[in-house]
Design a protein around this nucleic acid. Structure first.
Lengths: 263, 263
DNA sequence: ATAATAGTGTCTATGAGACAATATGGC
DNA sequence: GCCATATTGTCTCATAGACACTATTAT
């Protein structure tokens, strides 16, 4: 089939609507947070930390009444990452730059969305607990919930293929927790090693490292990723916020070791 | 706001074409291969191995005459992974299941494709050299090229944002080479440790491990990923295909160590 | 014998892993 | 003085890293 040209530009030969095209490309965001809950004990203790995911109860077709990930459609003036940033800002009121937002993958199984041929792009984000609480309180138009991963995966009725997405996001955040320094995003700039250990365990429950302090402070190959915090005189700084005996404060250095199964 | 329903199905309220929708969602595939080239020496030697990427010279608008990744548009009856599998099969003539095909990411910067709002999904695949050679010889309709990464990134004029995609794919394959057992896909089922080392170095040139044999065979924590090949009597099998002195053959066990920066 | 690669011996310094012991500071 | 958590001591065995040395076999 040859088309007649009405001008010199070859691009007019290209018919963009010859085949069916997708009905939309949304970004859906798995927003993780680490909740802190005080424990009542005789003396100071670390708060309990739990990994939670934020969901919104859908009010309209499809999947009305079911829980689903926050998200929205991409526009032709933005990349999908920008869509996700915009959504994240709309959901939390805070600029996305400040926190971790990472692409997770594409979800495109035919029939996954009853509205049509909709190819969804999943992201995951790490958000401070307080922001989600504020969001939860402020917005009475939408029902917002914070659930543990277990609740979300096993007890809730979720719309679309969002159960798959949450599952994948959970695996990814676990991988990332152990192979990168995203733990940083769950901690204040200066933290104790117990806090770091607790954050890791909250995300990866089966992480066990009895000699954690030893390894991270005295192993040459790993030593580089965190460093002791010191004051101007070079004295080590410590905190007794969560314990009687003050604990040394550390910060991340920015260094990232390269892992390898062969060395 | 409550709307009157004309039938029981709420879905007729939803207008799928209210906003502009994407003009297509193609899958583009970065097909890597490891070429083997005999070296002429006095005695047997390992062939030289080089990582190459397959590109196709475009014949039509846009970017006619420029090199680009093979790919094609997704249909509404398939997931994007299936699109990639189909494309890979069309390009190589071989079923995708046999080899490594992995999602890389989404490329959606506005203006990346002059044909319209086209959101591309990049995959990377590992393909045997012979298949690409066959393809190169058979298809006189299309000009097919195998280039080193350096050539592709620094010398070639590439269409779309395919330079970015190739760059990202290169980083990803390097990561994967060191943190997973994809080396397996570049090797026969049974191989010598020199071959394995050479494959790793071909993909990650700055990988240096002088005591490679030592570490991989006698370190308890790593020992599990490969095992010696033995015959029925339990005698170790070796090969002198590439050397005078026969070398022990190994195979991957299927075991995958979990890497962590904290332990 | 030689070339070219495979694999071992050996030595030292460092790290892992397990526990016991000690330190700190609010109560 | 007690408690809960932080931190160090100590001991053994495994591993890293360097480098010299020996092994194998087609030519």
């Amino acid at each position: 089939m040859v088309m007649k040209m009405t001008d010199n530009s070859k691009q007019h030969m290209y018919d963009v609507k010859k085949y069916r095209t997708p009905d939309g490309a949304p970004a859906d965001i798995v927003m993780f947070t680490l909740t802190k809950k005080e424990r009542k004990t005789f003396t100071k203790t670390l708060p309990l930390r739990e990994l939670k995911v934020m969901l919104i109860r859908r009010r309209s077709w499809p999947f009305a009444g079911k829980w689903a990930l926050p998200g929205g459609f991409s526009r032709d003036t933005e990349s999908l990452f920008e869509t996700a940033q915009r959504e994240l800002k709309e959901e939390t009121g805070v600029d996305a730059d400040a926190r971790h937002l990472e692409y997770l993958g594409v979800y495109s199984k035919p029939g996954r969305d009853p509205r049509g041929w909709i190819i969804s792009h999943a992201f995951f984000a790490l958000v401070e607990e307080e922001i989600l609480e504020k969001r939860q309180a402020a917005d009475d138009a939408e029902e917002v919930g914070l659930f543990t991963i277990e609740e979300a995966l096993e007890q809730l009725e979720l719309g679309f293929d969002h159960r798959d997405i949450i599952q994948d996001a959970y695996h990814r955040i676990q991988e990332q927790m152990l192979s990168t320094v995203i733990a940083k995003k769950f901690l204040p700039p200066e933290f104790t090693l117990s806090e770091l250990y607790q954050v890791i365990k909250a995300v990866v429950p089966d992480f066990e490292e009895p000699n954690f302090i030893r390894k991270i402070t005295s192993t040459r190959s790993r030593k580089g990723i965190i460093e002791e915090v010191r004051d101007e005189q070079g004295n080590p700084l410590s905190s007794n916020q969560y314990s009687q005996r003050p604990a040394q404060l550390y910060r991340f250095t920015g260094l990232m070791p390269r892992l390898s199964i062969y060395s």
